[in-house]
Amino acid sequence: MIVYEFKAVINKQQTMAIEEAIRTTQFIRNKCLRFWMDNQKIKPYDLNKYTAVLAKEFEFADKLNSMARQAAAERVAFAIKRFFDNCKAKIPGKKGYPQFQKNNRSVEYKTCGWKLSQDRKYITFTDKCSIGKVKLKGTYDLHFYQLKQIKRVRIVRRADGYYIQFCIDAERNLDLQPTGKTIGIDVGLNHFYKDNEGNQVENPRYLRKSEKAIIRLQRRVSKKQKGSSNRKKAIKRLRKKHLKVSLQRKDHAVKLARCVVRNSDFVAYEDLKVRNMVRNSKLAKSINDASWSLFTSWLSYFSRVFGKVVVAVPPQYTSQNCSNCGETVKKSLSVRTHICKCGCVLDRDENAARNILAKGLKLAGYLTYPGEQGNDNALGENPLYLTLETRLSKGTH
């Protein structure tokens, strides 16, 4: 599935119509959630049928396209399924019980309720919400795909306006020649990451760089009278600043993950529990600013696009164990150099990256970990890993 996004060029009347459609979507979603709470043995198909009942009962709900109402019900079904999956998997902490939505920002259409112009630069929404014809501003060309491949169309509200997203049923597979390179990545706060060869990428710290501007905008919001138009304008400027920071993080994560996966055949990274790590009040802001989860999720995505191997490794003892002999060398966070009695002296993060790579290769079945029997291909003795190259060439990863 490929998602193309365009900026929507609309007038004031269309803005009001889109907002009404978004509120209707939120209303239907919350009604379906309440219906499930009162009848927990129902199936997802029953939620779809309930949207038709809501359309007959409420006149404003009938204005929204029938498939858009079903898409709102599917959001509830997905939240319910995720909750039960987390319960079955016995995930520690909160399981994500479905909650009522208070600030919905999107409305989703399926295969009807909209119509593209012949030049694919305009889209017309044909339901009773009266959104009408919307100009699409962007660089993507929708002529490459047939109309039947467009499975979903979303209208998304952001701080800087409204966007139209097209979900296209198309596979994005790019075949690349094997490079014979393997990489282990240790993410951190001093540097965004350091690999097993000592190469490092600096942490951009977008939130820290914009913190003064954000504080100034927050102060302006607090000085405005509640409910006034000036306060709304100040809030909008603050939202735009936060949106810019989030877009900068995404752009950095996407470009960096793409570069890492393209230039390597095998990538191993730490499977960090960021949700637990941000409980540290002294490091929470820096951890969130680093956006490790965003980076690793894009690593997994590009591994499917380019047909490469990406493995998540448990982070336990990757910093404490020696990458050369496997001996445990305990050290605090303030100690940045790994010194082992076997003579191995490395930067702490580089040592961890080597351990992550070795663990990843072991999990994938390519290598034995340092210190174990049968360690003929230990880390650092055969950098090409012939078994890995063979499997990649045969496509058996």
Rank of each mutant, 00 (worst) to 15 (best):
L147W: 07
Q200T: 14
K209P: 01
V221C: 11
G198K: 02
K194T: 15
N199G: 06
N196G: 08
G184Y: 04
R208N: 15
A159W: 06
G180K: 06
Y163R: 09
Q218N: 05
H143S: 13
K151W: 10
L142E: 05
R220K: 13
L207H: 03
I183K: 03
Y145W: 12
Q200M: 13
V221E: 04
I183P: 01
V153L: 09
L147Y: 05
G180C: 10
I150V: 13
D141I: 03
F192W: 05
S210A: 15
F166I: 04
N199R: 12
I168F: 00
E171S: 14
G138M: 11
T182N: 14
V201H: 01
R172F: 11
L147T: 09
L136N: 03
I168Q: 04
R220S: 13
R216S: 14
F166S: 05
R154P: 05
L207T: 00
R172C: 10
V201W: 00
R219N: 14
G138I: 07
L174T: 08
V187Q: 10
C167Q: 13
C167A: 15
L207P: 00
Q218V: 01
R157T: 00
L189W: 10
A159T: 01
A170D: 08
N196L: 08
S210W: 03
G180F: 08
P204M: 02
L189K: 11
R152V: 14
I183E: 01
N199E: 11
R216F: 11
R172S: 11
K148W: 05
I150M: 01
I164K: 06
L176K: 03
P204I: 03
E197A: 12
Y140G: 04
V187S: 09
R216A: 14
L189G: 13
F144E: 12
Y140S: 13
L136E: 03
K194H: 01
Q146H: 12
R172K: 15
R208L: 15
L142K: 03
I215N: 11
I155R: 04
A213C: 04
H143C: 09
L136V: 00
R208Q: 15
L142W: 10
R172N: 15
E211H: 07
G184F: 06
G138A: 11
A213E: 11
K148C: 04
Y206Q: 05
G138N: 08
K148A: 06
G198C: 03
R220N: 14
R208H: 15
L174R: 00
F166C: 04
L142Q: 09
K212E: 15
P178T: 08
K137T: 04
E171N: 13
R154M: 06
T179R: 05
K151A: 13
L207Y: 11
A170K: 02
V156T: 06
R152K: 13
R158C: 07
Y163T: 09
R172M: 12
E197F: 07
Y206A: 01
C167D: 15
E202N: 14
R205N: 09
E197D: 12
C167R: 10
I185Y: 02
A170R: 04
E211D: 13
Q149R: 08
G161V: 02
Q165F: 01
E197M: 08
S222M: 00
V156S: 03
T179I: 01
N173Y: 12
Q146M: 07
N199I: 03
D175H: 14
R152C: 10
K151M: 13
N173M: 05
L189V: 15
N196F: 07
A213V: 08
D195M: 07
